[in-house]
Design a protein around this nucleic acid. Sequence first.
DNA 1: TTTTCTTTCACCTATTTTGGTGAAACTATG
DNA 2: CATAGTTTCACCAAAATAGGTGAAAGAAAA
Lengths: 206, 206
Amino acid sequence: MTIQITSRQANVLAFIRARIERDGQAPTLEEIGEALGIANVSAVLKHVRSLEAKGRLTIEPNRARSIRLVRESDPMDADALELPLIGRIAAGEPLFSEARVDRSLRVSRSLFRLRPDYLVKVVGDSMRDEGILDGDLVAVHATPVARHGQVVAARVRGNEFTIKRLHWKGDVIRLMPNSPGFKPIDVDPTEDFAIEGLFAGLLRGS
Amino acid sequence: MTIQITSRQANVLAFIRARIERDGQAPTLEEIGEALGIANVSAVLKHVRSLEAKGRLTIEPNRARSIRLVRESDPMDADALELPLIGRIAAGEPLFSEARVDRSLRVSRSLFRLRPDYLVKVVGDSMRDEGILDGDLVAVHATPVARHGQVVAARVRGNEFTIKRLHWKGDVIRLMPNSPGFKPIDVDPTEDFAIEGLFAGLLRGS
DNA sequence: TTTTCTTTCACCTATTTTGGTGAAACTATG
DNA sequence: CATAGTTTCACCAAAATAGGTGAAAGAAAA
């Protein structure tokens, strides 16, 4: 049996879940407090700690917005995600056509803050300074919603996936590589451009 | 983490465990009460129910001697590795003393060339140029055998883990960071030095 | 059916946890 | 350094849980 949480704790948990869903980012303690009508962050922290003790979420010490939800619904296999590795993408193809699923890997859900939906193999070293190397598998949370500054998986002109940091100022969308010797990609509004998802994590084999 | 049990509950649990060990049979509520000096079975039942709620044992309704202890880790399918995340290491401690196992993650075996045995959390950016960032979880294949040029998890002077590239020329052992602004560590042959294992892979959450 | 166990009820006190307030200290990061 | 967040400390009231006693009702098995 899962340990019982109080209704107040359930509210806290629901708010956190909704916020992560909406923003792709966990809320701060103060934001939680605001939403629940708690004047004080330390009370919020106690709730969060209780939820952590009860196995519903994890939190990294001293790290902002580091709350991660642990368990979706089933205590058993909720922790085990099965992530398909998506191969190369040709123009306009639907994302999950079977031919392109090479293999799949299992990873604990609790590793990630954002629930990943699939893996993409990185080609090239354009994000080396973000610690994303050639051959790495990037876990992607499939969503078309991204904000300035986030690392996204995008497709430009119907080409293959590219993993880049999104710069979004006014009408100018720019994909920033993060390594010396690589140039930013400016996206022309008339061009095909799709944000496939957000960077959710990374796996690297030996 | 597992939910905390009280010391009284721990005693109950210990007695049950000992009795199952000795007799191959779980004790009755009355026997537990006798051993713990509780005059009444209903109090014993409450303890047992608490332990059940906390996931330490199971009990079948209306069935005599039906207490069963919950085993810690159940064997998953062959492809799923369960990797414990090892916390900080103090001098000379054995590697898996329970206090330091924070949590564990499941990952497919097939991600790795070298089979990893545990995870270590990276502190600092000294291996940034290898794509190993602060906060990443490095999968370590436990072995004392390493060759020149490999990335190793090592301990110097009984300190915490450090992930570095091993340079080994003649008698000189040198641990090379891989980031500007970090200095190599030269290992004096008289010093404590242990190679705990080889870099087997890397996991990064959102 | 009797015996052996388990389960439920009512009732009790002591201790912990929950759920707060407020202020100050610490830490990560640009 | 300034700032946005996290963490800790002291303090408080209300509620839940822990840990008991005792008696009686139910269930399972020989």
